[in-house]
Design a protein around this nucleic acid. Structure first.
Lengths: 201, 201
DNA sequence: GACTATACCGTACAAATGTACGGTACGCAA
DNA sequence: TTGCGTACCGTACATTTGTACGGTATAGTC
C-alpha cells in the first residue's frame, strides 16, 4: 500500500491539528481522516494517539473534538474581543448594536474584560497612535500616571496619557498642537487602560 | 415549575455560549444543559435555537459543538503567524530556531505567507512605528511606491517606506534624523510588505 | 373560561464521533 | 528465512451529541 516515510505524515498531522487548535476549533478524528484522505478513521486515530503518546498532544478521552495542545505548550487559543464602534458607556455586553466585529488577542493578555476601540483624532500621534488605529483596552476604573487610557469626558470617549498631579487628574495628549485636559471630576469616567495598539496597512 | 422572567435565562445562555466560543471550544447542547441545571437537553436546545432564530448565534446543523458566532460578527477563527526574532532569510518554516512565539491574525487578512517581526530602531517613528513594535509582514518580492516594507540590505533587515524613482529603489525612513537608503541592487532583497503594526503596552 | 405564548420536563431516536479488533503491505534487522 | 515495527485499511460497535415529539405549569389576553 502507499505509505509515507517515517514520521513525515505524523508531523503533518500534528501541524494540521495544531493549526486547528490554535484557530480555536479542535478537529474530529474523521476530519483528520478526510484532510489526509485516509480511508479509515483508524489511521487518523493512530496518528493522533501516537502524538498523544509522544506528548505532542493532549486529549479528553471519549469527548467529541477531544484533542488538545499539551498543557505545558502554553498555546491557549487566542480569544476574540469585541471591537466597539462607539463609546462603550455600559458594560460591553449591552452595547451590541455598536459592535463592529471581533479582534483576536492572545489569551495570556486577556486578564480582565477587554474591548477594542478605533482611534479618532490626531492627539496621540506623538506616541505612535494614529487616527484609524485600533486600541485594545482593558476595562478598569483606576490608572497610574503614564498609562495610556480611554476616558469618558462629558459625552466623548478619548484616548490620552493619564497623569495624576497633586490629586488632580490630567489627560495629556502626545501632540504639541493639543492642550492637556483637566476634566471636571463629575463629568469624567475612566473606561480602561490601553494595553495594545494595532494598525492595519 | 420554576421559571425565569422573560428572556433573562436566554441572555445568560447567550453569554455562556459566547464565552465558550471566544475561548475557542464551542459547548455541546448538554454542556449548556448542565451549566444551567436544566433537566432536559431540550430546554438548552430551545434556548440555543431561539438565539439562532434571533440571529444572535449561528450554527452548523448536525455537527458536534456546531454553534458559532454569527458570520457577520467576525467570522473565521484567527490564525497564528510566527513571530521571528531575527532576519527571516529562508522560508519562515526553516527559521524555527529564531521563533519568538506566535501572533494571532484574522484569517481574512491571511492571504499569502505572513510572519511577525519586532521593530528595532527609530527610523519609522514618524509613521507611528516605534522600537519594540511588532509588524505583520506578508512575504512578497515586489512592492509599490509608498508601501512600508521589510528589506534585507546587506545582512540587516530593515523596515522602511519603499519608493521607486527613475527605476531605482529607494528606502525612505519616516524620521528626519535618518537618511534615505539607496541600496546596491546586488545586496538588496525585498522580504515583504508590512500589513499591520502592533504595540503591546 | 378559552386561547396563546413562554419556560421547562421526559423520553426516544438518529447522526456524529471516539474506539476496538483484525487484517494487509512494506522495510529492516537478526 | 523469521520476526518485528510502522503505516495503512475495513468494519463494527459504543458513546456522545444533536434532534424530534409530546407533555406540564404559569402568565397574560381576549
Amino acid at each position: 500500500m502507499g505509505r509515507t516515510p517515517a514520521g513525515e505524515t505524523r508531523d503533518r498531522v500534528f501541524r494540521f491539528v495544531r493549526e486547528r487548535l490554535l484557530g480555536g476549533l479542535p478537529p474530529t478524528v474523521r476530519e483528520v481522516q478526510r484532510a489526509f484522505e485516509f480511508r479509515s478513521p483508524q489511521t487518523a486515530r493512530e496518528h493522533l494517539e501516537g502524538l498523544v503518546r509522544e506528548g505532542r498532544l493532549g486529549k479528553e478521552a471519549g469527548k467529541a473534538r477531544g484533542y488538545r495542545l499539551p498543557a505545558r505548550a502554553g498555546g491557549r487559543p487566542p480569544v476574540l474581543v469585541p471591537l466597539l464602534g462607539r463609546v462603550p458607556a455600559g458594560p460591553a455586553d449591552t452595547a451590541v448594536e455598536d459592535l463592529e466585529g471581533y479582534v483576536p488577542v492572545e489569551a495570556g493578555r486577556a486578564s480582565g474584560e477587554l474591548f477594542g476601540l478605533r482611534v479618532r483624532g490626531e492627539s496621540m500621534t506623538g506616541a505612535g497612535i494614529l487616527p484609524g488605529d485600533i486600541v485594545i483596552v482593558r476595562r478598569q476604573a483606576r490608572a497610574e500616571s503614564g498609562d495610556v487610557v480611554v476616558a469618558l469626558v462629558g459625552d466623548e470617549a478619548t484616548v490620552k496619557r493619564f497623569e495624576l498631579r497633586r490629586g488632580r487628574i490630567e489627560l495629556h495628549p502626545a501632540n504639541p498642537a493639543f492642550q492637556p485636559i483637566l476634566p471636571d471630576p463629575a463629568a469624567f469616567a475612566l473606561l480602561g487602560k490601553v494595553v495594545e495598539v494595532r494598525r492595519y496597512l
